[in-house]
Design a protein around this nucleic acid. Structure first.
Lengths: 224, 224
DNA sequence: TTTTTAGCAGACCGTTTAGTCTGTTTCAAG
DNA sequence: CTTGAAACAGACTAAACGGTCTGCTAAAAA
């Protein structure tokens, strides 16, 4: 076998992800990706026959990492506490603690960038995104169902919608953070969501709600 | 004065809005807009010197309608009930009732489409979006503050973040509805948000929670 | 050593794109 | 009735774009 092409492929994917998260898919030219990744026309079209192929590969990698993130954090939450409601809340808190880092290296969500951008929704690209979203909603709905069975929530709320609301909060927070150019909104919105879930399932909010983020929360918030 | 150009201008804006909400800004060519609006190159560039000018005009119109929508519904909610907490909840319910119609005629939010799409964020385009978002968060924060002063919420929650969460829910629901190709998610997420607010402010959920939408809510929701 | 092939470089090409230019029509002011 | 300017219509253009093609290089197989 000849020289290994994997590093080049990865470099192209990395550049494309960075640029397309900023500018969108259609607004990013392959020439820009080539320049940013310091490769060439030949290298690019050797690894990706068309620009759409790059898009598909990008979404595939992104969605896989996303679902793995989901499962990793849920497993960690399960190891932390036995109660399903507590697990969901711990799960949110884990993302909360990682929020600043996530937003720093990813100013927005690739899903949105592609769903709002693409003219070619008939490529299987969208389906991969749907699969990832379904993974989120299914896993969270199961957890919430278990939580509701153990200690029934204080309000009559649809559990599937509540599971979806976690995803909704993520995506909405990405948009808010990007619009207002304030990355802290991701952490803040997740903290709010956790608070609402604690209220709903009557789980006492720990006094130690991620202390190292509390110090950063001095802001222009007019609390009176 | 010569012939009135306003109708042509409006037709171009309407076509552009429709197409760009579907495909994004960069992915929509001016030729497509011209064809869809049955105008011409001459007409287009007479009204909009550049494509970016069209984008700016589009956002200006969209944001103005959005803020007007916000104020109209809040005024209606204020006429309906005196209690600030009740007003916020009535406000959400009004959007809930309009949700199906809104999503039907607008499959997504132009803000996102432009914030995720644009290479030229230095046009004042983004600033108009920020202004609209600020209108939302300011108005809602004021209401929530008044509500919290009257009957303190059952949980310690940041009111600015809670105000922002309304916007977050809208944007996230747009994305969810579009991704899963199920417009009902907008209404469902708004209903969920209303339920959480009712719980937080201890406002009893009316038995008559928009009865005509209740009949439509038969779905695959596994409630057991 | 020779051959083969993946990996890559970059000139090149046809199409699409945003934007221009030269008109023609409409309509109100003078 | 003439004029002048806004409101178009549509051929045209320069640049950018996605994609092709030819050829070179490295390294493993024969």
């Amino acid at each position: 076998m000849p020289k290994d092409g994997a590093p080049t492929r990865t470099r192209i994917l990395d550049s494309a992800e960075r640029l397309m998260l900023q500018r969108g898919f259609a607004a990013t030219s392959v020439d820009e990706v080539i320049a940013d990744s310091r490769s060439s026309k030949g290298a690019f079209f050797h690894h990706f026959p068309t620009k759409n192929d790059l898009g598909r590969a990008l979404v595939a990698r992104y969605a896989a990492a996303d679902v793995e993130h989901l499962e990793t954090f849920m497993t960690a939450a399960e190891a932390e506490i036995a109660d399903p409601a507590g697990q969901v809340i711990a799960f949110i808190r884990l993302f909360e603690e990682a929020a600043d880092e996530i937003v720093a290296e990813q100013p927005s969500c690739l899903y949105v960038s592609f769903i709002y951008d693409r003219q070619l929704t008939e490529d299987g690209t969208t389906e991969m995104i749907v699969d990832a979203i379904v993974a989120w909603r299914d896993l969270l709905r199961a957890k919430l169902q278990a939580a509701a069975d153990l200690h029934p929530p204080s309000s009559d709320i649809d559990l599937q919608d509540l599971a979806d609301h976690v995803f909704v909060t993520f995506e909405g927070a990405f948009i808010l953070a990007r619009s207002l150019q304030d990355p802290s909104h991701m952490r803040r919105q997740l903290a709010l969501l956790r608070g609402l879930l604690e209220l709903l399932f009557d789980v006492p909010s720990k006094a130690t709600t991620s202390p190292r983020t509390l110090t950063r929360r001095s802001r222009d918030r007019p609390r009176q």
